[in-house]
Design a protein around this nucleic acid. Structure first.
Length: 169
DNA sequence: GCCAACGTTGGC
DNA sequence: GCCAACGTTGGC
């Protein structure tokens, strides 16, 4: 039996969250009084599993504007609350209402994120494609529709380099 | 359990 | 507006 291992702090993980700026943009996040929001409306099981089981406090998030002009990574955020039931699924008036999800047995989950920084110069999809270190990002790959995606530490850093800012994390 | 039909996402 | 790539649904 080996000696008891020191508990090593788990490495921070990085993610990319997609949002259509017409429904919620990074400007909206910056306008929140606490610069914090709950990331609701994810209705995909793979993304749900990440939100519920994998994403941890302090993880970092690239904020991506999809279906936008231009499509781009526009800033960063920090996970400040881990997965909990997405209450918008319980509300029949809500666009993301899902009768299958019940408060006592929720199907859908969300996390809270707080703004870290709005990039002074956004990193467009075209720039990502043109960057050797970023062209293989999941968000660039054809048909990658997952709205919550893992990002490597190297990609996180390369995005900051393209944005011309220091990694504040 | 298979798979065709359908709906959605999201880049182009 | 188009359509590829998925994911979901429902008949069998």
């Amino acid at each position: 039996m080996a000696a008891k291992k020191k508990s090593t702090p788990s490495a921070r993980q990085y993610w990319l969250f997609k949002s259509e700026p017409e429904s919620y943009s990074i400007v909206d996040l910056a306008k929140e009084p606490t610069k914090t929001t709950f990331w609701d409306g994810v209705r995909n099981y793979q993304a749900r599993n990440l939100l519920r089981d994998t994403i941890r406090l302090g993880d970092r998030v690239l904020f991506y504007h999809s279906n936008a002009d231009p499509m781009a990574i526009v800033g960063t955020a920090e996970v400040v609350k881990t997965g909990y039931p997405d209450h918008t699924a319980f509300d029949p008036q809500d666009h993301h209402y899902d009768p299958k999800s019940k408060p006592d047995e929720p199907t859908w989950f969300m996390v809270d994120v707080r703004l870290l920084q709005v990039f002074p110069k956004l990193v467009t999809r075209d720039e990502l494609k043109a960057c050797v270190d970023l062209r293989d990002m999941m968000v660039i790959r054809q048909g990658a529709r997952l709205s919550i995606q893992p990002v490597t530490a190297a990609e996180w850093q390369a995005v900051h380099r393209l944005a011309g800012v220091k990694d504040k994390s």
